[in-house]
Design a protein around this nucleic acid. Structure first.
Lengths: 220, 220
DNA sequence: CGGCATCCTCTTTGATACTG
DNA sequence: CAGTATCAAAGAGGATGCCG
């Protein structure tokens, strides 16, 4: 991307990561941790392979991504975020939160990957009963599966099947998401095709939190 | 911008405002409030006029900007953020904060506008003595002037000259910024050409704050 | 397979000139 | 003041090929 040529933090940030696909690459690495090239391709449906290669070079050049030669069991290149790259998390969270207003519109034709649910969970969930025992919730949608694990007040989202989940949810992405962020009640979600095994009341433990408003007025 | 075609909040947000220049247009409207077309051009050095017109149409279409026919004293079109557009503030703040790491690099050749300082002030300042009387600090850099006003714990940044400032700062953008965010001490700033009138110690009232870390791990 | 590079077409950008 | 019109250059997207 050409530089905006403006001595402003927002402009400089966009100079570095404002190019098309860049922030989505960062999303993948934030959500999944170190990834192979093909993992990235899978998590970025629609990207042209030459663009992915070029963007990874660009992100490396600005110090957001680094590449590692993985040791023998993997024996491939792993791409991971640098410290600076991980510090983009607030940007991605703010974008995801703002973008959630468009998630009600039907996902017809849109690709979906389960691990994308980790952002809504991170943004909208809080463990209201951190003293209670660990809990695991399996989520199945499309061909993929993920697990949300709560333990000691900490929430984690992993890809893959659960060992012995306390609750299993399956349904289409829109319904699962609606349920997870509280836009749909369990009853509404079931009406839209949600299937569940286990006590769906467990979800109440993770009600959305609210945050304080900003304190500085920008344009009085 | 073509849609990413991904059912993900971040992707949907970028579908809406990820196009080149869009977030900088939002920055201008956040910092300056309702603007005329030519105000926007001035605050967006480097934008082509056809692009500005097109982007304003796009942003209107996604509900981020609205246009108003201003009443007789102004008698022109005013562009302003909708509620949804104002809710992009956390995105811009996160971007500006992340981008501040690139602000140490020399601004040679980069354009600068004083009102861009409002973001760093909003991000890095806090009024540690809100009970104290109101205070106004004038900032002069390049051809422009702005005022930072503190009153009752509230901070405001305005364009234009100050009435009777308690402190006047002038210098190049990099030095002023370094001083405002605490990267430079007053002595260092003076060595880099800062000129001041009034008690520069007043700045201590507005020391940077720190924020708590995030509580949800994304990629365990 | 994993990690690209090349080639090609189509779209978007940026610069400039011009207009109601 | 608030744009539209035009055009060259850069970038995106898709297909395919190459090399360990």
């Amino acid at each position: 991307m050409r530089s905006y040529g403006q001595y402003c933090g927002v402009a400089r940030a966009l100079d570095a990561v404002g190019d098309r696909w860049n922030l989505l690459i960062v999303r993948e690495l934030l959500l999944r941790g170190p990834c192979r090239y093909t993992d990235l391709q899978h998590g970025l449906p629609g990207i042209a392979t030459n663009l992915l290669a070029e963007r990874l070079r660009d992100l490396e050049a600005v110090g957001v991504v680094s590449r590692q030669a993985a040791p023998p069991p993997v024996a491939t290149t792993l791409f991971e975020l640098t410290e600076s790259g991980r510090e983009l998390e607030p940007v991605l969270r703010a974008l995801g939160r703002w973008g959630s207003r468009f998630m009600g519109e039907s996902p017809e034709g849109d690709a979906f990957r389960v691990h994308w649910l980790a952002f809504p969970v991170a943004e909208y969930w809080v463990d209201n009963d951190p003293e209670a025992g660990p809990l695991s919730i399996a989520v199945h949608t499309g061909e993929e599966a993920a697990v949300i694990e709560a333990s000691g007040g900490q929430l984690d989202v992993r890809l893959g099947p659960a060992q012995s989940p306390d609750l299993v949810l399956s349904g289409d992405p829109q319904t699962i998401l609606g349920l997870l962020v509280g836009r749909l009640s369990p009853a509404e979600a079931r009406r839209r095709g949600l299937r569940s095994h286990g006590d769906i009341g467990l979800l109440r433990r993770f009600r959305p939190e609210h945050r304080p408003p900003a304190s500085v007025r920008l344009a009085p």
